[in-house]
Design a protein around this nucleic acid. Structure first.
Lengths: 341, 341
DNA sequence: CTGAAAGCGCTTACAG
DNA sequence: CTGAAAGCGCTTACAG
């Protein structure tokens, strides 16, 4: 529909130079006299010309594109993307864009044999994986990429034994500081709401922080207070229902994810308990929803902006052929109304 | 870093056919005998070969890529993307992917002279614009694309005078049904929280629905009940503060966006009013946060999944050179706890 | 159904 | 600093 797009030859003719010179004038490192460059730029503007990126990529073998592959969230019906990743994706788009990368975004089922495709077909120079937190599944996948020499980084649990290039939050430390804060408030019976599967290492790390804080305060972790849940608001509601129906006494809730904490607050209020007077509630993530509840939710913030920068920078380094170390990003305790004083 | 990628010539040699046949065997409409195709596919698998998408795009002139251009939200500090678009983007990724499109996503400032770039540089066959709801700004921009013959669709207010290809919700009808519902509950003093700028036509349409429902019920719209706000939780809080400090009596709130309604609920509770007993609250959008408040927020749902499908389908039709009509997607009234009975 | 050949629009040594 | 030429890896008429 576009009619005839002008090519570099058209610009060359109009500017009275060779096609090669047009190419030089319009690319980053091209050596041309300033006068000629100006003529070319004017001619390009006049004909509404832009470099054909596909020809450039083919010829130069530089793609300047990164792929963001997001694990499709099968639990959620409303949106296929985990809300935690939303601002992170936004920041990745913004930051990668500022570094001159185009960004391909794709949703993938964890089961598919995706991934290799993107780099392999020369669509992207490197891949950022988001939401692949099931250790058993993803390790095999990225191993393939490693063999192919495809640069990739993954957001997830940072563990030393892990094959390089994983970037994530200080989950244990974040959980520790949160629970320590609750203890400082005088809470002793702190319920733990979390993911049961042993392959979700991030949640396991948060559990370890919980245990450390309790132990340090001389409190013996009580299995009755530990509720296995998947990560959803509904599971948070159910967890509180279960604790109360079993008659388990508790004066605080630490949830491994804000979604759980949101559900917990709702169910506590519904049951006539006051938050934070009767029960303090603490989440993890600092989703945007934390400021929308009444009372507003205290939480452990994962810095998604910083995460995006670190991920893109690491991939950038990897693409240029240098090694990168795995990195743990500090969390920050955010105290709002749901904790009380 | 990847070493030598195999080309179609390598596959040809291995399979004992010509390079052209490899190309045919591996492309959609290629005519080849089944036996040969199998040999080629096997050879490709053996060498871990995938078609170089850049060469394919250059040669075939088919890009099979759509660009999603999102207006960067300057108001928000936490995330640069309006939360309303999050699930829509997810659905677009999913649906466009299922149709065989790659999806480039980019954040743009409304002021930039972006956009034309994407189609023009042969990066994308067409463009989906999200969040460009300032009528005055975007009309000029898309006009340029129109002249260039670049396919595009825009999510926004659907108005007959508008240059084609805009897809949006039935804003007037949605607001009408919401306010009518409040009136049916016995509410008479219904505050309107909305965006003041006349160029934000979607909000204007919702205002018109509000007025129509009131008028139809014989209630004269009262300017005292109409509060100008930008679209944020904070503005929702401020709006309620203002109404109460001015001593304006009201028994319901209709907000043009859930964000406002969330803030309204928070401030009403803080001021000791009961929701919904004293005041019914109704939002618009059906953001995911609606189920996270206490009480849960009633709202007018915009169907983001349907929207994504309609946008992608329309762009698809446009790309193939056929015309498309502007379309209005029905909204749905979602009654939750914040309305009362 | 298959092969030989041309060419998509660029970038980049190689000369000058 | 600039030009002529080769070639990136494919697709697609054109023959057969």
């Amino acid at each position: 529909m576009t009619g005839k797009r002008p090519t570099s030859f058209d610009i060359a003719a109009l500017a009275g130079v060779s096609q090669a010179t047009v190419s030089r004038a319009l690319s980053q490192g091209g050596v041309v006299s300033e006068a000629v460059r100006q003529r070319v730029v004017d001619a390009a503007a006049q004909l509404n010309y832009t470099v054909d990126v596909n020809a450039r990529k083919l010829r130069s073998k530089k793609i300047n594109t990164i792929a963001v592959l997001i694990s499709e969230d099968m639990d959620k019906t409303d949106s296929p993307i985990n809300p935690f990743f939303m601002p992170m994706i936004g920041s990745i788009l913004k930051y990668a864009g500022s570094k001159g990368y185009d960004v391909l975004v794709s949703l993938q089922k964890q089961s598919d044999n995706w991934g290799s495709d993107y780099g392999h077909a020369r669509r992207a120079d490197g891949i950022i994986f988001l939401g692949y937190n099931d250790y058993d599944t993803y390790t095999k996948k990225v191993a393939v990429l490693g063999e192919m020499g495809e640069p990739w980084v993954l957001w997830g649990p940072v563990i030393p034994e892990h094959p390089n290039l994983v970037i994530g939050s200080d989950n244990e430390g974040g959980a520790y500081s949160a629970v320590k804060h609750l203890i400082g408030l005088g809470r002793r019976r702190i319920a733990f709401l979390g993911e049961p599967s042993a392959s979700h290492l991030e949640y396991k790390e948060r559990f370890e922080g919980y245990v450390r804080a309790l132990t340090e305060a001389g409190i013996t972790p009580d299995p009755e207070l530990m509720i296995d849940c998947f990560i959803s608001r509904e599971d948070g509601v159910a967890a509180i229902e279960r604790l109360m129906s079993q008659g388990v006494a508790f004066d605080a809730v630490f949830a491994v994810a804000d979604l759980l904490a949101v559900g917990a607050i709702q169910q506590l209020l519904r049951a006539g308990r006051s938050v934070p007077k009767d029960v303090s509630v603490m989440g993890f993530d600092d989703l945007w929803v934390c400021t929308c509840t009444s009372p507003m939710l205290s939480t452990v913030r994962q810095d998604t902006t910083e995460a995006a920068h670190v991920l893109v920078d690491a991939l950038d380094v990897l693409i240029s052929g240098h090694p990168v170390e795995l990195k743990r990003i500090p969390t920050q305790l955010i105290i709002r109304e749901s904790c009380g004083g």
